[in-house]
Design a protein around this nucleic acid. Structure first.
Lengths: 189, 189, 189, 189
DNA sequence: TATGAATGAGATTTCATTCAT
DNA sequence: GATGAATGAAATCTCATTCAT
């Protein structure tokens, strides 16, 4: 097995455990078992448990950016492009709840403060750029891209969280309504 | 010191620790020190660490409802009343960041799943009720109150998080713009 | 069992282990067993393994000073007093080889550099003072007390080490000769 | 790189690490790094970590004997020859503190007991022989060569240790006085 | 009720050594 | 012989919880 595979196995196992059990209750011994490696091997690839968790966050954020922009078509209207992001995000995370749960746990924990500010910013750059252009071309309300990102991602995450919790079953028309509520708020009037 | 005071001291100490260091890295021994009680005393008031954390969540949610509805005036328009909620929330949490950070950490962690569904629902009831009435009276878009709560609280939380992170300094007009973005999305057209 | 007893039990167990097996090969788990306490109890009294070792050194140095000056009689000549020290030291350490072996291991290891310089100096103060007075009264050669302490303690330790190693069996006259060799070197001519 | 070079590189790296950090805190992985060899390579040349340490001791003792007797001139008086040894030793070790620190650590640790008695004796033979002849020719006090070696090496080591610790700055006259103190003790009266 | 020393299971991490390449 | 990723036993240390006072 190549180094690449082991690191990936460690990432996958950690993602699953943290999503299920949280940072605590995710001991390294079980991580080793789930990743099918020896405990010591983990420390050959990472300096500490915290380092794994932070590196995993970066990995997942990059994966997320790939997902978001996979089928983006700059020829389309901003509304259509945004709509595509919205539904992609929803679909991806409802199909991969572990990724969502991990990311939300991470950004709401003290871990996020251990991250380098510039690195964090770079991970959000693709989204910022998209929104900046949309604002510049008068497609979106004149608002700081940071605030707009917060508003959009905040409400979208809440929708996904509600869906994953099982508290509410989203029909396609529910989702469309949620999307429009968001869009009507941010669009240029 | 009365029993009441000790419980409160324990709650306050736990809130501060978890906000700063997370659920892990908040050992009971330090909790005892910060709350100025003996380790054993904590176990006279609570069965376990988990119980403290869950009870603390309930305490903070109730406090939050009090804050939200403190100055609500049903005679006013729904827009004004909602505006008041929005600004109250922002002010309260930017002045009490520990409370916000704790709540966000809790609801995004596996702890939330240990809570009784009905209890959870009851804690959100005041907000649901307000929104349900607003929808019924055609002040707000026709959307499930659950979805609407998610959209509103999600975007509001994101704004507060952005502000607390220090990444963006909100001016009064920024906050007004954020409020309007939210309102324009949810209002009945 | 009182706190005092547990700390002492830990010290005694550590002394024995290190003397026999060295700093490495003296695991905390065995220390707990030998001291008849739980592993966690050790950390109730000490911050770390290193702290125990350093505190143990201080304890042993103080014990040693007590031994050295126990029967000192300032009315006697410096030669007689020094002779008494020499034989006391030899007897004490040949009867308590663990104490000797621990001290020698410690002062020759990197641990000694972790100690505070002033604390170290204070532990040697009684011996310095004795020698300073002896030099001042022209009983001993005019030499810095630090150098003289080094010369005396170095040769004495070497004699004890030789004796403990079993490589050489000291007769009373051997010891007397060793003492005189030392004395003839340091006395004022 | 020849096998010879690798072994030497391993020895040098181990010497430095142990002098700085002690036997514990000198892991094989770092040894490999410092010696610029792979971890596995070390095990082609040595059976175990302990074997390296013991072999290193033998290497350093032999080096030391070379240094001691490098410029010995049997035509000179025993006092002059001994004086030469004394100053050579001091100079060599103050210039190569790692060698001194390693040797002192080794002989004061349980490692010394793992060594073969005869091998150990052989390493000290040159010094024993010199002293035996000096005693036989009535240049030195009539004392067992073992005791005399202990007295001399013990006090000399203590002087070097004091100098290396930085606690005392030796002037040439300090060193001369220390030498004379030793010589006056051992010389035949 | 209150205390805080004591517990011991279990957490994270280290490290000497092996072995497939 | 040389490599260095992998191993897993064992090391240090943590911490929720208990219990004698």
């Amino acid at each position: 097995m190549k180094e690449f595979d082991k690191k990936e196995a460690i990432y996958d196992a950690m993602l699953e455990m943290i999503a299920k059990y949280g940072f605590h209750n995710s001991p390294m011994s079980e991580l080793a078992q789930k990743a099918n490696v020896a405990a010591g091997t983990i420390y050959h690839h990472f300096k500490s448990k915290d380092e794994i968790i932070c590196a995993l966050f970066v990995r997942q954020k990059n994966k997320l950016n790939e997902v978001l922009f996979k089928n983006d078509d700059p020829a389309k209207s901003y509304k259509d492009r945004f709509r595509s992001f919205y539904f992609h995000l929803y679909e991806h995370f409802t199909k991969n709840p572990k990724e969502f749960t991990f990311l939300e746990q991470f950004v709401n924990s003290p871990f996020i403060q251990k991250m380098n500010k510039d690195d964090l910013h770079a991970l959000d750059q693709p989204v910022y750029d998209f929104l900046r252009k949309a604002i510049f071309t008068q497609s979106l309300r004149d608002l700081s891209p940071k605030i707009m990102t917060a508003l959009i991602m905040g409400s979208t995450s809440a929708i996904i969280k509600l869906s994953l919790s099982g508290e509410y079953q989203f029909s396609p028309s529910d989702l469309e309504a949620a999307f429009l509520t968001c869009w009507d708020g941010i669009k240029k009037v």
